[in-house]
């Protein structure tokens, strides 16, 4: 069979995709690696020089970098469990038989937060969480909470918006997993036990795991590169309270113009993301 398709045909079909991927993904990555090994400041291009791993050493010993990284992981461990718990709950409710029209409408409405541009979410947040005329304080009975100007509240606000925007994604992925459970197996399990937890744990969970691992990987990567919403909402402030790692990299690279240092930060972030993805796959992922 192999001989029936010529190499030219294979290249013709696969080549454009590979070239496209190389152009938009691999070439910039190689360039970032090159940049990270140089003193490369956009406003000092006359002084570009090879400095080996100096940028990496600066990043790894920079307290501010690790504080931003810690803040990012704190966001991850705060928002992601909430998204999984809420997403799972929504998926289980929508998986119940009956009420077809309402469930369809719910599924459609779940897409809306995901379809909202990140930057728009940030701008909405600025208005809704405004201390004086924002709807959030009105909903809290006319409370006088300073959301944007207080470090803790600003962080909580970011968690809120991240959960609002991405819980539906988790719910839809898990709902897809639930639909994979063979009907007769689930039905038999429900005849065996009245415990919904037992059904979830032993029957549904194996089918949810691949989706859950995908959620973990995608949401972790998304959180590590979370930028637009925070940039438009708090710009990393007040102080550094919402300066997550992507905002820091943008600040160094595009406001301080130190592309070399920013590239080193980005490469380290990429390595951390890959390690985390591998951990998720090894620890959680099992074939059904």
């Amino acid at each position: 069979m192999r001989g029936q398709v010529s190499r030219k045909t294979i290249f013709a079909f696969v080549g454009p995709a590979v070239i496209g991927l190389a152009a938009v993904g691999i070439a910039p990555l190689i360039y970032a690696v090159w940049t990270s090994l140089h003193f490369y400041n956009l406003t000092k291009l006359k002084k570009v020089k090879f400095i080996g791993f100096e940028n990496y050493s600066t990043v790894l010993t920079d307290e501010v970098f690790w504080q931003a990284m810690g803040r990012t992981f704190f966001l991850l461990v705060t928002a992601l469990p909430l998204q999984i718990i809420l997403g799972m709950s929504i998926a289980l409710v929508l998986h119940q038989p009956g009420l077809t029209l309402i469930k369809t409408l719910c599924r459609l409405s779940l897409v809306l937060p995901m379809a909202t541009t990140y930057a728009v979410v940030g701008l909405l947040g600025q208005v809704m969480f405004n201390q004086k005329f924002g709807v959030m304080n009105q909903l809290l009975g006319g409370a006088d909470i300073n959301w944007i100007g207080d470090p803790e509240n600003a962080f909580a606000m970011i968690v809120f918006w991240d959960v609002w925007q991405w819980t539906p994604f988790v719910a839809l992925v898990l709902l897809a997993g639930l639909t994979m459970v063979p009907g007769e197996v689930e039905e038999a399990a429900r005849l065996e036990t009245k415990s919904k937890w037992t059904v979830l744990r032993y029957v549904q969970m194996p089918f949810l795991l691949p989706g859950l691992v995908a959620v973990l990987i995608l949401r972790t990567a998304d959180t590590l590169k979370l930028f637009d919403m925070v940039f438009t909402l708090t710009r990393g402030g007040p102080g550094s309270s919402t300066e997550f790692i992507s905002l820091m990299i943008q600040r160094v690279g595009f406001r301080g113009f130190d592309q070399g240092l920013a590239s080193a930060q980005a490469i380290i972030l990429l390595i951390i993301t890959i390690i985390l993805a591998q951990i998720y796959i090894r620890v959680f992922y099992k074939e059904v």
């Binding site: 201390q131 300073n146 944007i148 100007g149 600003a154 708090t234 402030g237 007040p238 102080g239």
Partner: peptide
């Protein structure tokens, strides 16, 4: 700062 609005660092 005691005579400024709360959250002046976000102004």
């Amino acid at each position: 700062m005691q005579y400024m609005p709360d959250g002046i660092v976000a102004f």
